[in-house]
């Protein structure tokens, strides 16, 4: 588990950007490289998170009151719906 003292940008040690330093806000070359890499990782995560969020609901299936409603409406001989 990463401690979180610094954000690991995986740059050369000499250029390591510490989280607490204001320079981290600037667009250093190291920073930019890290951004590109993060961009790809995040792009992959966006898909994962999006489906995860959606499937959390999908996996709940059909709520009983909705199932009952559909069956009741579609079993009647005379049109009510």
């Amino acid at each position: 588990m990463t401690t979180g003292k610094t954000v690991n940008l995986q740059g050369p040690p000499a250029n390591e950007v510490k989280a607490d330093e204001p320079e981290a806000m600037g667009k250093t070359a190291t920073h930019r490289k890290a951004e590109v890499r993060l961009g790809r990782e995040i792009q992959a995560r966006i898909g994962q998170q999006l489906r995860g969020m959606y499937d959390e609901v999908v996996n709940q299936g059909v709520p009983k009151h909705i199932d009952d409603l559909v069956r009741r409406l579609t079993d009647q001989d005379d049109g009510v719906a």
Binding site: T2, T3, G4, K5, V7, N8, L9, A19, E41, R45
Partner: peptide, 8 residues
């Protein structure tokens, strides 16, 4: 930031 560092 601990979480963010993990992500990063």
């Amino acid at each position: 930031r601990a979480t963010r560092a993990v992500l990063a």
